[in-house]
Design a protein around this nucleic acid. Structure first.
Lengths: 121, 121
DNA sequence: CATGATACATACTTTAGGGTAAGTACTTGT
DNA sequence: ACAAGTACTTACCCTAAAGTATGTATCATG
């Protein structure tokens, strides 16, 4: 999690958008290149850290946990660690995370409509 | 529209996410602090450039136009200019743009659930 | 004659987020 | 004794997106 400089216009504006705009609120949670993909992989059931890593080969480990930590902090996923060695950690969608799935479906539906030329963009 | 350096990992990854993930595809279109807000203001009917400017006081003109141009390039809004002086330009949601409204509604619904404590995050 | 309103454009700066590379701790297998 | 697998962490760099500031053309009005 990168340090945030307090007092920059960009942060104030983000704050403004966050309060004024529920869409921005959602995008704060699922924005970031890998978050939707992580959410997608978790939508079919809980996964170990290493399973996610293998499922998304293009992501680096730093980005993977960074996003997992943010998702956890935002209450979208639940981390469970068994105190064994080697470590055994699983990530699961929370209720809030599961509640996002319809949103994701709506987005996917629109994307496929666009790709199928329904809208003649 | 900022110039894009081709061949950077971040661009390759964006490309990857774009192809693999319809959600990322959507967020490419409506990501950016002001785009959802602009879309929202256009959802109630077409607006002049200056009306948008006044409706969203926190946005700078550079950002406003930049996002409007991107939305236009992405086929979400339609720009219409009357050849008069002073200029008279209106922006309207296209069919594709209108098609996004259910997505936006779904996002807003989730956001309000979260804020109402439905999910106990 | 200069000010205001319209709808932009453009050069320059800042910063948040993403990426690279390397290291940590602990155990099992060879 | 050394590599491999687990789940991370940390220091540093690079860039895309956002922001600042200023300029442009045209006409109407005081």
């Amino acid at each position: 999690m990168t340090a945030i400089k307090e007092s920059s216009t960009i942060q104030e504006n983000k704050q403004y958008a966050l309060e004024k705009c529920p869409v921005t609120f959602v995008m704060e949670k699922i924005g970031g290149y890998w978050k939707p993909i992580i959410l997608y992989h978790l939508s079919t059931g809980d996964k170990r850290y290493s399973e996610l890593k293998r499922a998304i080969p293009a992501v680096t480990e730093k980005m993977l946990i960074q996003h997992l930590k943010q998702l956890e902090a935002d209450g979208l996923v639940i981390r469970e660690a068994k105190p064994v060695v080697p470590p055994f950690v699983t990530y699961t969608l929370s209720n809030a995370g599961t509640g996002l799935l319809p949103v994701i479906d709506a987005m996917a539906a629109w994307a496929f409509k666009v790709k199928d030329g329904v809208y003649t963009i």
